[in-house]
Design a binder for these strands. Sequence first.
DNA 1: GTCTATAATTCGATAGAC
DNA 2: GTCTATCGAATTATAGAC
Lengths: 195, 195
Amino acid sequence: MYQKGAQKRRDIIEAASRLIYEKGYDQTSFTDIAEEADLNRGNFYHYFQSKDDILEAVIEHRLAGIKAMLAGWEVEFKTPQERLKRFVQILKNSENDIVQFGCPMGTLHSELGKCKKEEQEISRQMFDAFRDWLKVQFKELGVGREAGAYAMRLLAYLQGIGAMSYAYADPAILRRETRELDRWIDTVVAGQKSA
Amino acid sequence: MYQKGAQKRRDIIEAASRLIYEKGYDQTSFTDIAEEADLNRGNFYHYFQSKDDILEAVIEHRLAGIKAMLAGWEVEFKTPQERLKRFVQILKNSENDIVQFGCPMGTLHSELGKCKKEEQEISRQMFDAFRDWLKVQFKELGVGREAGAYAMRLLAYLQGIGAMSYAYADPAILRRETRELDRWIDTVVAGQKSA
DNA sequence: GTCTATAATTCGATAGAC
DNA sequence: GTCTATCGAATTATAGAC
């Protein structure tokens, strides 16, 4: 039955994605995923060829989610200013997870960079998706050829806020600094309008 | 001979610190450290009681280095503006390492947060050292009770820049964003002088 | 203090019956 | 597709001779 197999595969990916987020890729074993996805441990290789294969499926799954989210924002919000603020809002919406496990994208990418450089290149696609989308927003704001730099800057500050909120497990840091980032966006917008 | 044993212990700590930085804590095995420190694998437990014990010694060693560095800057630079810029300069001075392995403090803290929350509290002392020192500098600048927030903000932005330079293995990101951070410091200083 | 040998687990991965 | 059983390698950690 194809449907059943496909659903089980999705279950495994979602369980693995959550565990990789909470425990890290290396610390997530087949035993862990099997328990979470209600799967027999020996039955893994029917769905995936290797542990790296699961990782790639998880990243692919996350990437699809990111792209769908960004596409949705294009429809939901009319101005780049609103869209950029919605981007910053990600942090507040995942506040509890961020302070406990960090940014799912940043912490995974950091771990993979240490010993699995090939896999890191795959996970970088998640950053690329945000970066490209942010660049479009800044271009619409009219910052011209600085759009790429602004996109990277906002991405970096978001990563930094996530990292420090995680380091101190403190939602107050997250809230204060996201407000500051919102103000920064207003400043950029105001700077363009006056120009 | 006490001297010899103490020197060997320092060798182990320095080898472990480097390997933990480059490969991550979990991926760094006793075999790796033994090779690097020219030590017999079975002889580890003469110097350390467990792998966590080595980790704590590494963090202690790094922390001492950080505190000595910050104390040195207090003497070397006369104004808080110069000191803050020297802090940002850290990134450029370690450019090659940062783009390849990320921030040694940030990536370790991120890894420990996933599964070893107790050890994370120890590694947080490194952040505390920078945070406290930065707070003093901002206080000297005259930002008043906002000093703590400014300290955290600068720490966060530095982490973010490190994370993105690492993610894209791109020194250009590092250089551009550190220049931007220097300008931000100038802005804060100017804001205080005019007030 | 230094060495060899090995215990005790855990891991990813495989084989094969049903 | 699902299950049990297990391999081979790697890991941290220990025991004990020298």
